[in-house]
C-alpha cells in the first residue's frame, strides 16, 4: 500500500448539498471516494491509500484537474483505491462531486 497526501489550493463558490458523501466500493479495480466539508481556509486536503505503488504524480494531476473542474474548496477528499483504472477513478470522482454539490455548479 502507498499513502499519498496532497494539500491543494481550492476554489470558492460551491455550496455543498451535503456534509459528506461516499461513492464507490473498495474492490479489485474499484475504489471509494469520500468528500467531506472541512474548514481549510479554502484549501483541499487529499489523502489517498492505493494498492498500486509509484503513481503519485499521476494522482496529483488527476485530483488537481478534478478539483478545478468542480471548483471545490474547503473539502477533505479521501480515497481508498483497490487498483482502479483511470477511467473508473474519473467516474467515481465525478459521481462524488455531483452528489456533494447536489449536481449544481
Amino acid at each position: 500500500m502507498e499513502h499519498l497526501e496532497f494539500d491543494i489550493a481550492g476554489w470558492a463558490g460551491v455550496n455543498p448539498a451535503r456534509d459528506h458523501v461516499l461513492v464507490g466500493v473498495v474492490g479489485s479495480g474499484n475504489l471509494e471516494v469520500m468528500i467531506e466539508r472541512a474548514e481549510l481556509a479554502g484549501r483541499c486536503a487529499v489523502a489517498i491509500d492505493t494498492s498500486i505503488h509509484g503513481f503519485a504524480p499521476t494522482w496529483r494531476r488527476v485530483v488537481e484537474d478534478f478539483l478545478a473542474r468542480h471548483r471545490l474548496g474547503d473539502v477533505r477528499v479521501s480515497i481508498n483505491d483497490g487498483g482502479a483504472t483511470p477511467a473508473v477513478v474519473g467516474l467515481r470522482l465525478d459521481q462524488a462531486a455531483a452528489e456533494y454539490t447536489g449536481g449544481v455548479r
Binding site: 500500500m1 459528506h20 461516499l22 466500493v25 473498495v26 469520500m34 467531506e36 494498492s51 481508498n80 483497490g82
Partner: peptide
C-alpha cells in the same frame, strides 16, 4: 464512514481498507 472505523489488521497485510 467519516469516523473512519477501518480495519486495524488489513494495512499490515498490504490490503486496502474501507471507511
Amino acid at each position: 464512514p467519516t469516523m473512519r472505523l477501518t480495519s486495524p489488521h488489513l494495512p499490515a497485510l498490504g490490503v486496502p481498507v474501507a471507511f
